[in-house]
Computed example of a mutant assay.
Amino acid sequence: MLVFILNAGSSSLKYQLMNPVSKEVLAVGLCERIGIDGVLKHEFGDDAKLKLEVAMPTHKEAIELVLKTLCEGEGKVIDSINDIDAIGHRAVHGGEEFASSVMVSPKVIETMKKLIPLAPLHNPANIMGMEICQELIPGKPNVAVFDTAFHQTMPDYAYMYALPYDQYTKHGIRKYGFHGTSHYFVSNEAQGMLDKKHNTRVIVCHLGNGSSVSAVLNGKCIDTSMGLTPVQGLMMGTRAGDVGAGALSYMMSQENLTIDGALDVMNKKSGILGISGKSSDLREVLEGMQAGDERCKLAVEMVAYNIKKYVGAYVAALDGVDALCFTGGIGENSALIREIVCAGLDGMGLNIDPTKNNKRSQEPRDIATNSSTARIFVIPTNEEYVIANDTYKIVTGLEK
């Protein structure tokens, strides 16, 4: 089976063409600057790359170009769009309505439209991608795979905010969590790597430009750091993470900011960028720290400290830990962040091996010392595979 995986954003879209049974990836790519001028970056075959600058006034033209590129010319990997068996869509917010992936239907799309207030930047683009694929690839099943679904197993005492209860019943104000496909994939891989198969307690640190931590008991999420929106939790590339309401209201009064203005600061001008004053890219900030930049040093220390606090909290929530996992661009590639996070966690049974930690590999690996009572894994995430595999299982009836 060939699954076309689509992740539609507001002005961009990512895609892959994958066989979820063999895990073979035929092509991967990105359309950028949709509605401006349009750039397609397409990778296929043995590291072959193709870049096209083509006008993409809307997402429809972008998807049309992707499908044409898959079937024709230099980037061709299939003979016809009819070779595509199904389309799997990343869907950001499923609210409480979707606790698992589902076949796209008019009812599903209508429900997702009602959830737009919870994800105003993401859900409209996700819906648009579904509707365009139904038009351009008629007769093929579409499946929605939700970022929030994996976290729907959280107990109410973990997902509720201590606001008046009617704010939950009237408006659905609660913690939902995100990066669910990554947390699911990595925690599932960790369970397979552990000798212990029952009562498994896994903490996943998905660290990238957007970051979150989850506590997973026996394969089920019991808590996660992101909340109603992705701005809650860890300090991230440009997001502030946890900030007290008093600090936010005081900043608004001092800077004469509206709600929208404050959210712009919290989402786009804070985090690593806001503290370092240099970049939202941790690699550049690490270089700045090594060059003696004190604000870069502070940013790095804050990032690691934030992660460590959540790890400690989730060890308590899980009543211990069997595996601490690092994934995402930062989690997989920054040995220094892993080292700082794990420093001092010996009392929790987490002992990192410096030699193993500094050894680079694209394969899942254990970087704990032999004597560590809990394991420390670095596991490359594969969200696209989760989308493709869920699509395969739903379309073939393996998951009902």
Rank of each mutant, 00 (worst) to 15 (best):
K107T: 10
V108W: 04
V108R: 08
I109L: 15
L115I: 03
L115S: 09
L118E: 02
A119S: 15
P120G: 01
L121M: 15
P124N: 13
P124I: 13
P124H: 15
A125L: 05
N126W: 02
N126M: 05
M128N: 07
M130E: 02
E131R: 00
I132E: 05
C133S: 13
Q134R: 13
E135M: 06
L136N: 00
L136D: 12
I137P: 03
I137E: 12
G139D: 14
N142Q: 15
N142A: 09
V143K: 02
V143D: 01
V143A: 04
A144C: 09
A144F: 07
V145S: 03
F146D: 06
D147N: 03
A149T: 05
H151I: 05
H151M: 12
T153F: 04
M154E: 15
M154K: 04
P155N: 09
D156A: 15
D156V: 15
Y157M: 09
Y157K: 12
A158P: 01
Y159C: 11
M160K: 14
M160N: 13
A162C: 12
A162W: 07
Y165C: 02
Q167I: 02
Q167V: 12
Y168M: 01
K170P: 07
H171S: 09
G172F: 07
Y176E: 06
Y176M: 11
F178L: 02
H179G: 00
H179C: 08
G180K: 12
Y184P: 01
N188P: 02
A190D: 05
G192E: 13
M193F: 04
D195N: 10
D195S: 04
K196P: 06
K196T: 02
N199F: 12
N199W: 09
R201D: 07
V202F: 05
C205R: 00
C205G: 12
